[in-house]
């Protein structure tokens, strides 16, 4: 999947957690959780959904580094995100 596809999946999952946000207004370089007001349970649910939909292993030790939308997309692309068969 390319980065645009990955971004679309993230957008989809964020809409479930935070239906009221306008995805287009998010700054990809800034802290995603601060911008969208995601608590630790929300973020864990986001990672769970991304893990299941993209088949990417996201170790807990890496999760803390994925603060911004840009870093999250780049990480998933690097790890070979692909929809499950």
């Amino acid at each position: 999947m390319n980065e645009a596809d990955i971004l679309a999946v993230i957008r989809d999952e964020l809409a479930r957690l935070a239906p009221e946000i306008a995805f287009e207004t998010l700054d990809p370089a800034l802290d995603l959780r601060e911008q969208v007001d995601l608590d630790s349970m929300d973020f864990l649910n986001l990672l769970t959904a991304l893990h299941q939909r993209l088949g990417v292993d996201i170790p807990d030790a890496d999760a803390a580094k994925l603060a911004s939308l840009a870093s999250l997309v780049a990480y998933l692309a690097r790890k070979g995100a692909a929809p499950p068969p």
């Binding site: 630790s40 349970m41 864990l44 893990h51 299941q52 170790p59 807990d60």
Partner: peptide
């Protein structure tokens, strides 16, 4: 917690809470 979560997929991870 870090050790317990190291090998777990996100769906079974624990939170400090």
């Amino acid at each position: 917690l870090a050790a317990a979560n190291a090998e777990r997929p996100p769906e079974t991870r624990l939170l400090m809470g």
